[in-house]
Simulated scan of single mutants.
Amino acid sequence: MRVTEKGQVTIPKPIRDKLGIGPGSEVDFVEREGSVVELVRNDEVSETVDERRERLARYLESVRGTLDLGGRTTDEYMEWIRGPRDDFDPR
């Protein structure tokens, strides 16, 4: 990506589409660890707690049922990925 004489850059279309950035959108560039730059939409920064919760709820609903547990229950799956608990006595 090249910076113009005016300090402008073009955000690639796939990124604009993914982030919902269009004409008139407000964006910020955030420095991370001294050199990496992150692009964030201003409206994400100014979201209320309720708006963030609603956005999270929509995302969680969109991915519901996409994890294949291989026929295991949640507890069986957790033990499978973590291994058996040595500190638990199931008497």
Rank of each mutant, 00 (worst) to 15 (best):
P84D: 11
D68Q: 09
K18F: 12
R64F: 01
G71Q: 05
G71W: 01
V40T: 12
N42L: 15
L19D: 05
V36F: 07
S25C: 04
G70K: 05
A57E: 11
L39K: 09
D50E: 15
L19M: 13
P84Y: 00
R55N: 07
E76P: 10
W80T: 07
M1G: 11
E44C: 01
L19Q: 10
V27Y: 08
D43N: 01
A57D: 00
R53N: 03
V49P: 09
N42C: 15
R72H: 06
V49E: 15
E47V: 13
E26C: 09
K13M: 14
V45E: 11
D17I: 06
G71N: 12
T4V: 02
D75L: 14
N42M: 15
V3M: 02
S25K: 11
M78R: 05
D43I: 10
V37F: 03
E76I: 12
V9E: 07
D50T: 14
W80C: 03
P23Y: 06
M78C: 02
V3H: 07
V9M: 04
S46Y: 09
K13E: 15
L67E: 09
G70W: 08
Y59F: 14
E76W: 06
G34R: 05
R91P: 10
F88L: 06
R64T: 14
N42V: 15
E5C: 14
K13F: 08
S46R: 14
L19R: 13
G71E: 01
W80R: 04
I15G: 04
G71S: 08
S62Y: 05
G65C: 11
D87L: 04
S46E: 13
R2T: 00
R64Q: 15
P90A: 02
V27D: 02
E61D: 15
A57C: 11
R58N: 14
D86P: 07
R64H: 14
M78N: 08
E26R: 13
M78K: 05
L67A: 14
R32E: 05
F29E: 10
R85C: 05
K6D: 14
D43G: 03
S35A: 11
R82D: 09
